[in-house]
Design a protein around this nucleic acid. Sequence first.
RNA 1: GGCGUCAUAGCCAAGCGGUAAGGCAAGGGUCUGCAAAACCCUCAUUCCCCAGUUCAAAUCUGGGUGGCGCCUCCA
Length: 463
Amino acid sequence: MRIYNTLTRRKEEFVPLEEGKVKMYACGITVSGEAHIGHGYQALIYDIMRKYLEKCGYNVIYARNYTDVDDKIIAKSKETGIPADEYAAAMIKKIDTTMSEMDVDEPTLWLKATQNIDNIINFISKLIQKGNAYAAPCGDVYFSVASFRRYGCLSNRSVEDMLDGVRVENNDEKRDPADFALWKSAKEGEIYWNSPWGKGRPGWHIECSAMNYAAFGDQIDIHGGGRDLIFPHHENEIAQSESLTGKQFAKFWTHNGLIKVNGQKMSKSLGNSLLLEDLLKKYTNEAIKFALLQNNYRQDINITDELFPEAEKHLTEFYKLISEVEKRFGTGKAGNLEIDKKFNADMDEDFNTALALSELFAIFKTISQKLAKGDESCADDVMQVRKTYSLLGLFKRNAAEYLAEVAAKNPVEIPVEVENLAKQRWEAKKLRDFALADKLRAEIDALGYTVKDSKDGYTVLKK
RNA sequence: GGCGUCAUAGCCAAGCGGUAAGGCAAGGGUCUGCAAAACCCUCAUUCCCCAGUUCAAAUCUGGGUGGCGCCUCCA
């Protein structure tokens, strides 16, 4: 299996640190707001990575974190009057519900910043002892970037380059403008924990280092996250962890692409986030997954109006066929290893879900042909598709239920006016007055609807 | 300004040195009173541009051009 490593900027053969075992960590959500499609995408990608590694026979320990204390959460707390810890807990509960609707599995370990304060404090203390960090008079603790020679190795920047960035804040407490906070002293009324440096809270970057260290020790195999975290977050994690252990922190760094809306990145500051909860009201989770997985996970995805409906259309067609096959031949037996082999070959190349999904069109074409010929092995193929593609979260549903869900999510309300025209047209058609029938069809068409005839009736659809 | 990343048909998109997958749209056909659905067929001599390496380049190298991202919070 080959995985693209941001650290080396190439695909590398995946070899775990310890045979048969994989330790992986993905940066999760800062719970200052609800989960958007980008969060869902990220959770989906790493869930798939984990499942495929498991399929390959590895014993995977997969950890994700929730950042449940930070400036934005504190701001929300001030805004709403809800204590910061309660706000964060409620938001986590909400996000968990949405993610389960998205059908993304829970990680092996959930790590939360507020449940690791001791680990964080210990970590910071060690960094101070080793000379990599210092406490400022105000009670903040900073990491000394100059103390870590390899700083910039992930994002390929030098400290000088970074200082060219005009936006490095000037802060008198810092010895060097490039230094970043490990511990932030609490201001009046803010949530705090006691520490050797006074009342305060952890900085964002240190959480991941400290929680990783507590959960996994010195090294992990795979560290993932959104591409926007490469700098500074992941760069800082490397600086912290490697300063402490003297060992390479993560062997593989993987970064998923970002979701864009109308060509623009979704971000908290732009406020253009598409909430996962809202999308799940309109589309099935399988359609959302299908749409997202048609791209390479490393690439950005631009959400257009057609993206999800098109995916839903495909899945509806597939499920219709599944439904027919299962109605006729019942539940088959998985065993078409050709399907599984191809899937694995695709996934072995840096989780090429786009290729794996494209195989489906040929697979279902064959199934359809077999069904037409009355070849009951198509039921086995369906079962194999279900088994293989469930790894991507697809074809996990009862076909009838799935189709009912799609219908329920797309209620078609036909205006009385249109309904009447359709009725008249049907009557005209029965009397073989095709001129009138065509005229009525044109009228219905003009109102934005189409009529579909079958042997003994008609259906009106919105165009 | 620095760094990264991408550029493949009208659109989305795979491709990782061996002669351009797949999907959408479009066009043609079968079917239908006409439609729709379904099915069948067609649809990039060429991969942003210019050089180079090679028997062979969309793929590698160098140089351009353009988009996007990061250097503030972000998945």
